[in-house]
Design a protein around this nucleic acid. Sequence first.
DNA 1: GGCGTTATATGATATAAATCATATAATTTA
DNA 2: TAAATTATATGATTTATATCATATAACGCC
Lengths: 237, 237
Amino acid sequence: MKQNGPIETGCMHCNVRLNSVFNVLDEEQTKELCAHKSCAVYKKGQYVFTENGLPAGLFCINSGKIKLTTTGYDGKEQILRLVKSGDIVGYRALLSNERYHCSAVTLEDASICIIDKKYFFDAIESSPKLMFEVVKKMSNDLKAADAHIVSLSQKNVRERMAEALLFLKATYGFESDNQTINVSLSREEIADYVGTSTESCIRLLSEFNNDQLISLKGKKISIVNLQKLIQTANIED
Amino acid sequence: MKQNGPIETGCMHCNVRLNSVFNVLDEEQTKELCAHKSCAVYKKGQYVFTENGLPAGLFCINSGKIKLTTTGYDGKEQILRLVKSGDIVGYRALLSNERYHCSAVTLEDASICIIDKKYFFDAIESSPKLMFEVVKKMSNDLKAADAHIVSLSQKNVRERMAEALLFLKATYGFESDNQTINVSLSREEIADYVGTSTESCIRLLSEFNNDQLISLKGKKISIVNLQKLIQTANIED
DNA sequence: GGCGTTATATGATATAAATCATATAATTTA
DNA sequence: TAAATTATATGATTTATATCATATAACGCC
């Protein structure tokens, strides 16, 4: 349980343009931005920020994967969102001048930079384009959260589990074999996203494995029969 | 099932400052805003906008109550949010230039104005203050959606039902008797928010009634024992 | 490299909540 | 105002899923 802080690194290797919302900045604005951010390397399992903390700036994921979690009742963890490289995190609390309502934890070693709060506000006030990019990001998160609500409300655990696997694939894509989902989550973490018990999660993955929908190798999950998995998830369209 | 459109009215009786986000505008900006909006009266049960539709502008609730719903699986309705007078609706799709992902339906007769899309974008680009107000609104909605996710994921139906009653009270307040929740929802609508069956919803309300947590009179629900209801909801702090 | 700890797996059991069924009350509308 | 429809109520039954229990596998550590 050693929890050392991130290791500060220079920004020379960090291409901030990786981060989608900053695509809209021109050469000069990007240079300016780089002068107001600092990069750091995080080890797997480290906290980027924690529930109830005050935002010091905006975090950009240069590489690595992040989970946004909140502590529910009886300390049970709930995974709210999963974040990939190129994304920003912690923008909500920052923009609305609030404390974080969830924590950000690295799922693997990650390179993350933090953009100075004051500078970020200057940047979005002077660049409506950038502001709109961030707003679009929040809009997407809200739409996804609403979809999650409908799913939790109306689908059974089996359907949600299939849906979660499709979501993981949509978020992180496949590995080079074109069928292994490119993220390693524990069964408990998957359960914490799906909203079920760890046992039920394990059991359903085993079933899907037996039914040849997926194949399992440690934490790695491969989608063997996408069509059947979509059917199991009971997705419209 | 007759679904007539709203009745257009003048804006002379509509105080746009009612709408919280517009508080930040000065006298002149408000005047300008009023020149670019039009008010209308909606009857109970009418659609303000519908899922998949394209936003024509921003809606402001001058009076009345609104539910934001989305159609889930097998056509089952999910209530995502409840909106009261003074609030804006439809801002998400508008800001991110998307179609609506949910519908807005009046829960009672309502007076609602629509602010022209083009003008609204001009307004937020020229007034960062206004933009931040809207962003804060979205931030709150996202935080609330996240809380809803945790609740659906981790609480049982009884706890969620108690929580829902507290949420209704927090949103719409009490009537003059200081204990009757100031909104009329059908049992089915409450179920569609809580994420349960109508029968279970009815049953639990009956139980709460028997246990003297609430009292029922038609669609009107009064909170008789707030402390016990909070306990039943299993809320932290 | 063996030992303790944690993660995964699977069976057995309990139970919350959905579903089905039927009755009554409250609205709507003819 | 009566008939029809819809909403509320409550009982009986089924079922999905949590919980408890135990075993094995994988992993971190001295």
